[in-house]
Amino acid sequence: MNGIRLVLTNFLSGLGRAQFFLLGVLSAIGPALLRPRIIVRQLYMIGVLSLVIIVISGMFIGMVLALQMANTLDRFGAEDAVGVIVALAVIRELGPVVTALLFAGRAGSALAAEIGLMRATDQLSAMEMMAVDPMRRVVAPRFIAGVISLPLLTAIFSVMAIGVAGGHLIAVDLLGGDTGTYWSQIHANVDLTDLRQCFIKSAVFGAVINWIAMYQGYHAPPTSEGVSTATTSTVVVSSLSILALDFVLTAFMFR
């Protein structure tokens, strides 16, 4: 009974601290924007370094989707619809969600470890003692970079999956479909509302992943075990949050 109460109060206090942390991050965003060079550096760490995994996963997911769909749709003589299905699936769901999951594994864990180590080696305290607010110099720039990076990565992922090498490669080059039909079918069935929702989702995911990662790192116990736990729970918690949030956002936005 006592154990349950302890777990519950720990959970609630962690949740509360995370909200205060978020408030701190949000209020530090303004001052952080005055230092664009730090943000550029973080765009590199968070965005550019995630590019390879995003591009490759996008290609393969587009290819496998097209292959599966082509096999099934062929039976109904509707293989022209392959492009539409790949495009809608990628833009509405797979693009934002898979990119966010990969991002959580690649960039989120790295962020948590980085901030956790900075805490463990007193770098954050040293900044405070140098009269530099780590929220403004360390946390907020990473947060901003995450919110910018994830929608861009999602767009790149989607283009890879639908066009460049994914669905298009399978549907047109391998199965002998027609490029014109492929694109016109997509064009007729995907509209800007889908795209807008795709980007709203991925911006929200970017904010949530970075929030979780940096909260975990910032409040990690200053030991090697603490940092490794923070890294693991970043990936677990943010993956679950992405999937749950995806459901909620979809339910809200698609009426």
Partner: peptide, 8 residues
């Protein structure tokens, strides 16, 4: 700081 706490 004890271990320097340089920004790595």
């Amino acid at each position: 700081f004890q271990n320097g706490a340089l920004l790595t």
